[in-house]
């Protein structure tokens, strides 16, 4: 079988979705862990975001994370493009739609709404890049000196950005979308990759639920705690 045949088959397409999905799940762990450094101020009054800025600097300057970042972006775009393609292709298979829909009687609403949830996340991502990633990587931003090194003051940028209530609201909504996207996507990715043993599926399901609650919660807490000056 040709590679092109494999990757354009319906299982092959889903295979890409599953693989990239799991990559993104791993990235979320890193991202959430790193961002959680902002909460260092809760433990150490003199931190003032230093730990977070240092970590961010490491991620932005070290060659390994930078290389991984390329992979990450490839993964994100593949996930997005493939996801949208699948969504439109799948939608086109019905023809005339039903008068009465099966709806939530046989499946969860979020499992049927991955395209919608994903699109919300994409819109959020664009905002998120504009606000943080592009300034940090390309257009430049304010800097602070830590241990004699000039580093980007991402902590400061967060503080100012999350002063705006609408931004906080958008971020929280995105986190909710992410939670539901993960609630289905986490276990679905493993099924798509062929996991079928009930013993393992039970573990994956449990992990998936925990992950879908924990990670978005950690993310959502950041704009909220910045906004209400719980940290900083």
């Amino acid at each position: 079988m040709k590679w092109s045949e494999f990757f354009t088959s319906s299982v092959g397409k889903k295979f890409i979705m599953g693989l990239t999905g799991i990559t993104l799940i791993l990235f979320l762990v890193v991202h959430a862990g790193l961002n959680a450094c902002i909460f260092a101020t809760l433990l150490d009054e003199n931190d003032h975001g230093e730990m977070f800025n240092k970590a961010a600097h490491f991620m932005g300057s070290n060659v390994i994370p930078r290389l991984l970042e390329i992979g990450l972006f490839l993964g994100i775009f593949l996930h997005i493009i493939q996801g949208l393609v699948l969504e439109f292709q799948n939608r086109s298979k019905r023809g005339i739609s039903y008068k009465v829909n099966y709806g939530n009687r046989g499946s969860k609403w979020y499992s049927r709404s991955m395209g919608l949830l994903g699109t919300i996340l994409l819109i959020f991502l664009i905002l998120h890049w504009v606000q943080f990633w592009i300034p940090s990587r390309f257009t430049g931003m304010e800097e602070v000196t830590i241990d004699g090194k000039q580093v980007h003051d991402l902590f400061g940028l967060m503080k100012t950005t999350f002063e705006e209530p609408w931004v906080v609201l958008v971020y929280v909504l995105a986190c909710i979308s992410l939670a539901y996207h993960l609630l289905h996507g986490f276990q679905s990715a493993f099924r798509t990759l062929g996991l079928r043993s009930n013993r393992y599926l039970r573990i994956v399901k449990g992990l998936g639920i925990a992950f879908s609650i924990l990670i978005p919660l950690v993310f959502a807490l950041m704009p909220i705690s910045m906004h209400f000056h719980w940290v900083g």
């Binding site: 319906s10 889903k14 295979f15 099966y102 049927r112 276990q187 099924r191 798509t192 009930n198």
Partner: peptide, 26 residues
């Protein structure tokens, strides 16, 4: 179309064929 693991098929199957089979196919 392709499968997105929603589970609606399993829920309506008159012979209650398990969706686990889809994972095996994958």
């Amino acid at each position: 179309g392709s499968c997105t693991n929603t589970g609606a098929c399993e829920a309506v199957c008159p012979k209650e064929i398990s969706i686990t089979n889809i994972a095996r196919l994958n």
